[in-house]
Amino acid sequence: MKVIEIQDALNLKVLGGEEGLQKDILGGYTSDLLSDVMGHAEQGYIWITLQTHKNVMAVASLKELAAVVLIKNNVPDEDMLEQANEEGIPVLVTNLSAFDISGKLFNLLTK
């Protein structure tokens, strides 16, 4: 499933990194601890988090993640979006909680 299909299905708003919307999603990981994501997320995963700073994109880029989803309408820092655009990694936002969006994503990705 591509990032753009999930964006459409779950009504996510794209905030940056549009270039990467055609990327395939290979799985997902929900965490707010950067080292947890560093250690356990895999290439092509979509990352659900409440963190809104630039280091999120550094981790997403180093791990070659497919996209980042911010929960509960969290607003990313400007330099986070700048880096998202540079890296071509989409940053999306939902009004749902981490639990709810993770559940919906899980259902979509394991269909």
Binding site: L33, L34, S35, D36, G39, T49, Q51, H53, N55
Partner: peptide, 15 residues
């Protein structure tokens, strides 16, 4: 608060 400093870093290195 930024999500660093959870005490997982050195284990990630070791692994």
């Amino acid at each position: 608060e930024m999500g660093f400093g959870a005490g997982m870093g050195l284990m990630n290195i070791k692994n």
